[in-house]
């Protein structure tokens, strides 16, 4: 297992190298350079002044040289400074990352807590009205965009200020209760669509598992319905749900970045949008590199959880 984890983490290197290459050149392909955005349309500058500014922005060398310099820096953990504020990029990002991660995992948690039980219930009452209702609701939840749901919730709940705090953000460590209350609606609007996905996967997987021979064996032992479902069926039915959850953490993180903006939460969302508008290349690059790392690590964690849940999977196998 240790060897497997080490191997997977090692595979981060080529992934991150590829990502760095793509993002570095991609941000520079967005029309409008950092300097142009800085100058705006109002200010006139002489060519000498422009040259001076370009050097100040650190963009005066051929792009390939710039890339190798940047790569050399980040290998040493130096992600550079913002073109606008001149402050180091990393601390600013790290201050906002926890909120976005919390939103992602809170929404993931809500999606599972809503989706799995509904999926089980739906499978046990297959083709009843309740099953039909939850499937239709699920489809609806799936087709509503997260930001739209978020906006709707802001409007709907703005009257309940006492109930759901909307004011200044506090972190999980300062005041956990207030923090969770604040993040509940944003997380719900991010996670509800995924809850629908989880529900459908759980339902279909349960329906398939309940047909299996070992379920009949469990019943033949005289086990109660509850043990048959929660011990024998769910342990098998949950496996595809784990896989689909792993695939979707990225989708949820993306949702978090958008929804933060609607709820005016100081996460990575605001920072990313600002950085893209201003073409603040070092910030964009750093954020993308960090998100790529998170992706790989989340995939690794998913695979480990899957292997723990399914004894037939051996992580050290060469096949995987």
């Amino acid at each position: 297992m240790g060897r497997y984890v080490a191997k997977r983490l090692l595979s981060l290197i080529p992934v991150l190298f590829g990502v760095s290459l793509i993002i570095f050149f991609l941000v520079r392909m967005i029309p409008g350079t950092a300097l142009e955005m800085y100058m705006g349309t109002q200010v006139e500058a002489t060519p000498e002044q422009m040259e001076e500014l370009t050097r100040l922005f650190g963009e005066d060398k051929p792009v390939f040289i710039l890339y190798t310099e940047w790569l050399g820096d980040i290998v040493q953990g130096d992600f550079g400074c913002s073109l606008r504020t001149g402050r180091p990029v990393l601390p600013d990002i790290m201050a906002r990352l926890p909120l976005s991660m919390e939103l992602t995992f809170f929404s993931l948690f809500l999606a599972l807590v809503i989706g799995v039980p509904l999926g089980i219930a739906s499978s046990l009452h297959q083709n009843t009205f309740g099953d039909f209702l939850s499937r239709v609701t699920g489809l609806l939840g799936l087709s509503l965009p997260q930001f739209w749901l978020a906006a709707l919730m802001v409007m709907a709940f703005s009257g309940f200020r006492g109930w759901i705090p909307m004011g200044n953000y506090v972190s999980l460590f300062e005041d956990p209760v207030r923090n969770l209350k604040m993040l509940f609606l944003p997380s719900l609007s991010i996670g509800i669509g995924f809850a629908a996905v989880v529900m459908r996967y759980t339902r279909n997987s349960m329906l398939e598992v309940l047909q299996q021979d070992y379920i009949r064996t469990a019943k033949a032992k005289g086990l109660k319905q509850r043990s048959v479902i929660y011990t024998h069926a769910l342990k098998n039915a949950i496996l595809p749900v784990i896989t689909v959850t792993g695939f979707n953490v990225g989708y949820l993180l993306g949702g978090a970045i958008v929804v933060e903006e609607v709820f005016a939460l100081p996460g990575m969302g605001r920072l990313s949008l600002y950085a893209i508008y201003q073409r603040d290349y070092p910030i964009i690059q750093a954020i993308v590199m960090i998100i790529a790392t998170i992706f790989v690590v989340v995939n690794l964690i998913t695979d480990i959880i899957y292997a723990l849940a399914d004894p037939r999977i051996r992580l050290d196998d060469t096949a995987r």
């Binding site: 299996q212 021979d213 070992y214 009949r216 064996t217 469990a218 033949a220 024998h232 342990k235 098998n236 496996l239 849940a309 399914d310 004894p311 037939r312």
Partner: peptide, 11 residues
């Protein structure tokens, strides 16, 4: 049961 592989719970 007939098939001992499918009749035992794999997990």
């Amino acid at each position: 049961f007939q098939d001992p592989l499918t009749s035992l719970n794999p997990v």
